[in-house]
């Protein structure tokens, strides 16, 4: 029986490779670094197997290890620039704009491409814990509960992090769209409320 249990654990652990790699790729923006992250995650996984008590929790558990490996890597990269100033800038970006109506946009596909490029750089500038929560959800496919297990904090904290992260992205897209002249402004009343939001 232990052999079968080991096989099941092995399969469950190896079944996480794809989600881990794709998340690592978006964390690092680089295939080689993503592979290094995943390989290190698996090495640590084999070493700490005794801590895995429930196969149902294997994915959040592995994402927790991925987070540790990633944070360790960031600490080693002491030259990595801090982006707090940029984040503050994003937060104060104007948002007194209405999203584009599909019918008002001549080329929706082009608009999507603009937004997609902007989203990638905006995610890269998020504070690390917000970026982890966002990518664990958007690319890793984890639920709020699983993210809370992976990041070892309450679900309420995860909700706050995702809210703040996506609010920053909303501001960023709005500012970007305005810069490209594809937005219409809203009423003064709307501007006031949005600016306060």
């Amino acid at each position: 029986m232990p052999g079968k249990e080991n096989d099941a654990r092995e399969e469950a652990i190896l079944g996480c490779i794809e989600a881990l790699y794709r998340t690592a790729f978006r964390l690092t923006g680089n295939k080689a670094q993503a592979e290094d992250l995943v390989q290190e995650t698996y090495l640590r996984t084999w070493r700490s197997l005794s801590q895995l008590h429930n196969l149902a929790g294997v994915q959040p558990w592995m994402f927790r290890i991925l987070r540790t490996v990633f944070i360790d890597q960031l600490r080693r990269e002491s030259s990595r620039p801090k982006l707090i100033t940029d984040v503050d800038k994003i937060l104060t970006a104007p948002e007194q704009l209405a999203p584009p109506e599909v019918s008002n946009v001549k080329d929706r596909r082009q608009l999507d491409e603009l937004f997609d490029q902007e989203i990638i750089s905006a995610i890269a500038e998020l504070p690390d814990e917000e970026r982890l929560a966002l990518l664990f959800q958007a690319v890793g496919g984890l639920s709020y509960r699983e993210i809370s297990e992976a990041l070892e904090c309450p679900i309420g904290t995860i909700m706050s992090r995702l809210h703040r992260a996506k609010r920053r992205l909303r501001h960023r897209l709005a500012a970007h769209a305005r810069n490209y002249g594809i937005m219409r402004t809203t009423s003064r009343e709307g501007e006031q409320k949005d600016a306060e939001a």
Partner: peptide, 20 residues
Amino acid sequence: RWLCEVEASLQRLNELTPLA
């Protein structure tokens, strides 16, 4: 609606993320 724009963009980001 802005959030929906963000979510749509995140969905495309996920779809375009390479496989291992």
